[in-house]
Design a protein around this nucleic acid. Structure first.
Lengths: 224, 224
DNA sequence: TGGAATTTCAATCACTTCTCGAAAAGAATT
DNA sequence: AATTCTTTTCGAGAAGTGATTGAAATTCCA
């Protein structure tokens, strides 16, 4: 699950990333409106944490843009301005939740998880795909009821492929999704090969089938 | 043992938390329906104290949600509305007990302990997990009938892990659970390593097995 | 205050992730 | 069908991050 943090206070960002990462999320950061818009236009996030007061403008612009694009990433507005006015504005613009600074990190994490759950899974906490079932709460994967041990990256990769099932996920998209902010990685999407390989192997060992098909020259796909 | 208090009167909440904490419970608070639902979906509690009249809706929604999720946390409904009507509704929805405001704190505590007892142990006061058995009354632990001396933190940790069995408990979550309200636990979940280590060692010395598995990068888990 | 419990710290160890090169497989061109 | 070029696979190992451990420092309580 991937989160975009739009916030300019470095210390706060740092602690948020640390905490959320610990909970198993992949985090990306934008510190300016412009940067944020670039990212939301280009990519898709499971949850966006949006600070309203940013150095180069009002965070709500990002939210507007998002809605104009018909993206339905879950949005949690975060701001020190706890005036009802801002709150209403945000929620009217389609934000999913609202959190006032300063906040307690576990509180944030709980809301993130709630938003993601609501957006993606209608109250179910499990995703299934053929014999594969993913418990999003427990962050565990089973094939034919047998647990399969996946690393964090493998888990994220599987989640990404399944949520793009029947579509080809380009290596670029995968790299972008897996690598958070590590810009250097993006060019060299070599490392994906390794993860794909291992994921394929583990799933195959457990289920007998090769669930992931390579689309030559394009990327990878999981077909229903 | 962890209790979720769903109640919006700050004074009342404060006194409940104080009292129950004294009795050895770990308390968490939600003041709104939405917040409460987020919490019950995500975590598991041994007992839920549920006020019916909440600022953003009816507390019974929480109970419905709980039952829909097939969770069997013990629920005690607490409300000023002592009408038979609400009482029946709540109990029909599967609440375990009912308490009218204003109440006497020891009375509350007695009911909590009764609910927990019923829920976990059908009259007995024990939790078991493989060869481990925990006597909640005496706060003592045995492995293969042999007593194991645990410190308070170790005891709470074990309880926490067991009540989240088959799920990964992140270090964040553990830190939060063990340290109550200390907000600044960011970089400081170091101490968990120590407790985990000691708990593992003690259990292993007693039972021969390593009951606690580390999930690299995420946390710890006890698997049935 | 004294002893136990808890937390911090630093060194070491383990696992994951990334890199790289060589080899295999897939398309394209002749 | 053979050749060539591109893309993918695979394995080995380096780099980076997280986990473990023992000991020391601190805090807590009786």
């Amino acid at each position: 699950m991937k989160i975009l943090i739009i916030e300019d206070e470095p210390e706060l960002v740092k602690s948020m990333v640390l905490f959320l990462r610990q909970e198993g999320y992949v985090c990306e950061v934008a510190t300016k409106v412009e940067e944020a818009i670039d990212k939301i236009v280009q990519f898709e996030y499971d949850c966006i944490l949006l600070d309203i007061s940013l150095p180069d403008g009002n965070g709500l612009e990002v939210l507007e843009k998002l809605k104009k694009q018909n993206k339905n990433d879950g949005v949690i507005i975060i701001t020190a301005k706890n005036s009802p006015d801002e709150r209403v504005k945000g929620l009217n613009l389609g934000a999913d939740d609202y959190l006032a600074k300063p906040f307690y990190l576990p509180e944030l994490s709980a809301r993130v998880s709630a938003v993601i759950r609501r957006k993606h899974f209608d109250g179910h906490n499990k995703i299934t795909f053929h014999e594969i079932s993913i418990d999003l709460q427990g962050k565990s994967v089973k094939v034919n009821e047998e647990p399969v041990e996946l690393t964090r990256k493998e888990y994220e990769l599987l989640l990404f492929l399944i949520s793009n099932k029947n579509r080809v996920a380009s290596k670029n998209a995968i790299a972008e999704h897996l690598s958070g902010d590590d810009a250097e990685l993006l060019d060299k999407f070599d490392f994906i090969y390794a993860h794909i390989k291992n994921l394929k192997r583990k799933l195959q060992e457990a289920g007998g089938k090769d669930y992931i098909t390579t689309v030559y020259g394009l990327g990878y796909k999981m077909t229903t």
